[in-house]
């Protein structure tokens, strides 16, 4: 197989220098994912082959590669949304080490509740729920008091310039950019040790993109391990400490780029 893949151990990044003794928060090793489509005569689609990389606390790592290279699949596997065929995904947080690739649904649930925030590309929610409640929901689920949760939700929506008149409406009728900002607020509302971002700035204007960049940097500054897919190079170079280069399986394994840009 590919021998050039991921250069672990990598040269220390800024964040690693700050926390030299700590193990990476996320450690992906030899991850493979194959889809078998039983509806199409058992066609096999290989999405990930032997992907390995790690993310330290306070570090932002971008998944980078052409479409079809498995960036989204990788991110979904990190969230426990896709079940890898082989390999492991270690997540270390709140004093525990969990292998998401092999953990029970209950453990993954706990990990999501306590450690992982996820900003998906699309907002998938109950149609009727108000924006404010949606943003506060992950906090409430984690046991935060309602008042505090709503306060934080308001702050974040304000910062993302979502007009206040929209806060009590359900986001179903919002524009793409507005929905995306609701989604971002929902993901950033809770200060978790791990943050996964799936094209968070895709439908945002320059001003809001800048705010998201700020939010990501703040997350890193407080020690959050961030993994993201960024559709534009500007945002990526602005936030990522490193990039993991993804290839279509069979072309070349994932490799790590270091430093900004």
């Amino acid at each position: 197989m590919n021998t050039t893949n991921n250069a672990l151990p990598s040269p220390a990044s800024d964040a690693e220098k700050a926390h030299p003794a700590e193990l990476p928060v996320i450690e992906v090793s030899g991850l493979c994912k194959e889809f078998i489509l039983h509806q199409q005569g058992g066609t096999r689609i290989e999405a990930l082959r032997d992907v390995s990389f790690h993310v330290n606390a306070g570090e932002c790592v971008a998944l980078y590669g052409p479409s079809g290279s498995g960036k989204s699949t990788m991110l979904k596997a990190l969230y426990g949304n896709y079940l890898p065929t082989s390999g492991s995904i270690l997540v270390r947080c709140s004093g525990r080490e969990t292998d998401i690739a092999h953990a029970s649904p209950r453990e993954v649930s706990r990990l999501r509740r306590e450690c992982i925030s996820y900003v998906s590309q699309f907002l998938r929610v109950i149609p009727r729920v108000s924006t404010l409640d949606l943003v506060a929901e992950p906090l409430l689920a984690a046991g935060c008091k309602e008042e505090e949760a709503l306060r934080r939700a308001r702050n974040l929506l304000q910062r993302l310039n979502l007009p206040e008149r929209l806060w009590n409406l359900a986001p179903a009728t919002f524009s793409g950019g507005e929905q995306q900002r609701v989604n971002i607020a929902r993901g950033f509302c809770r200060p978790t040790p791990v943050l996964l971002l799936d094209e968070p700035t895709a439908s945002l204007d320059a001003m809001n993109r800048k705010i998201v960049v700020e939010l990501i940097r703040e997350a890193c500054a407080r020690g959050c391990a961030v993994v993201g897919i960024f559709h534009d190079d500007d945002t990526r170079t602005a936030v990522a400490h490193r990039s993991v280069i993804m290839h279509r399986p069979g072309e070349q394994g994932a490799s790590s780029l270091h430093g900004k840009g």
């Binding site: 889809f35 949304n81 079940l83 993954v108």
Partner: peptide, 16 residues
Amino acid sequence: GLADQVLDDPHHPYTQ
């Protein structure tokens, strides 16, 4: 499995 995992990444032919 987890609800979103079973629905987004179904393995069994019937689930698919």
